[in-house]
């Protein structure tokens, strides 16, 4: 069942003969993991990883409805559908959580499963009209990205449309983090201080959610609804275990994204399975390494250097 490991086919070919296809695949994988990972750092730090989970599910009906209304699969249409769905999700979760005694975790579960179910139903009811199917929801189209139509600028073929879009999304995310670094840092660390500095953490929160929705659409088309969550959490979580400064954490999550994209490509080619899923498995392996380092480091040093201060925080 496991195909034999053929050095030539698995390791060499993707970078030589297969480069026109696989090059785009690995680039796209990297861009997706990069955008997701950068945003995901803040989700991990703000303890909002599961909101990422919720949004990655609930943008499905947003995309489906946008398709059905406009009959086009234009980038703008898709992103606006997702943006609306993402904001609806966060607002609904807040609404249920505030207005009833249902706790936030249950509110998240209810909202995203409802929206996702609605999306799946739409897709199966209008299977002929929607340019999405169950496979896309699960696996994404990462492996096929090289066959997408190329974007033309000034008559020159630049890159496949999805790769170009994702590249732009990445630039936006990087710009966002660069310009609003202070605001993101303070509102994640100490929202009360952010308020007192006049930073309006509520606005930062909603901007982050909007950016998340935009990032997730691109990633959703590439790796499917569930694996997006892994893309969001894995780089940040791995980096969080290894370093103790935010800039290094961001940098390390970029490295994680690159490594898992490349390793995922080879694993996917070897096992002939979805490259998105293989990227997640590779990323998880990197996380496990980081985790092992934490466990071993603890054993070597004895107990971690935690003075009396940390024990008093809980009390």
């Amino acid at each position: 069942m496991i195909p034999p490991f053929d050095w030539q086919r698995v390791v060499v070919a993707p970078w030589t003969d297969g480069l026109p296809t696989y090059g785009w695949v690995v680039l796209m994988g990297f861009l997706v993991a990069l955008a997701c990972g950068l945003i995901g750092n803040f989700l991990v730090l703000r303890r909002m990883a599961l909101v990422g989970d919720a949004i990655s599910h609930s943008i499905l009906p947003g995309i489906a409805v946008a398709f059905l209304l406009s009959k086009s699969r234009g980038t703008i249409v898709m992103f606006s559908g997702a943006l609306v769905a993402g904001l609806v999700t966060t607002v609904l979760i807040e609404f249920i959580h505030r207005r009833t005694r249902v706790k936030q975790d249950a509110a998240i579960g209810i909202v995203f499963s409802t929206l996702f179910a609605f999306g799946v139903l739409l897709i199966s009811m209008f299977a002929g009209q929607v340019d999405l199917d169950a496979d896309c929801v699960l696996y994404g189209e990462l492996g096929l990205v090289g066959m997408e139509p190329y974007a033309m600028i000034g008559g020159v073929e630049i890159a496949p449309q999805p790769v170009l879009t994702m590249g732009i999304v990445c630039l936006l995310v990087v710009a966002l983090i660069f310009f609003f670094y202070k605001e993101l840092l303070v509102s994640s660390f100490d929202p009360a201080l952010a308020t007192s500095l006049g930073m309006r953490p509520g606005v930062v929160h909603h901007a982050l959610m909007a950016a998340l929705s935009v990032v997730v659409v691109g990633a959703f088309r590439a790796v499917g609804a569930i694996l997006v969550i892994a893309m969001l959490i894995l780089p940040g979580a791995t980096a969080y275990l290894l370093v103790s400064r935010l800039p290094r954490m961001l940098l390390l999550s970029v490295i994680h994204a690159a490594l898992s994209a490349v390793a995922g490509l080879h694993l996917g080619v070897w096992l002939d399975c979805s490259i998105g899923a293989a990227m997640v498995v590779a990323g998880a392996a990197l996380f496990t390494l980081a985790w092992l380092r934490v466990l071993l480091g603890r054993r070597l040093v004895g107990s971690p250097p935690e003075p009396e201060g940390t024990s008093m925080i809980g009390g």
């Binding site: 991990v44 569930i226 694996l227 892994a230 979580a237 969080y240 979805s274």
Partner: peptide, 17 residues
């Protein structure tokens, strides 16, 4: 929350493979 999301997605990814 991070641990839950991580396990969810990684196990699911392994399942898909």
């Amino acid at each position: 929350d991070a641990a839950l999301g991580l396990v969810l997605a990684v196990f699911f990814g392994a399942g898909l493979v």
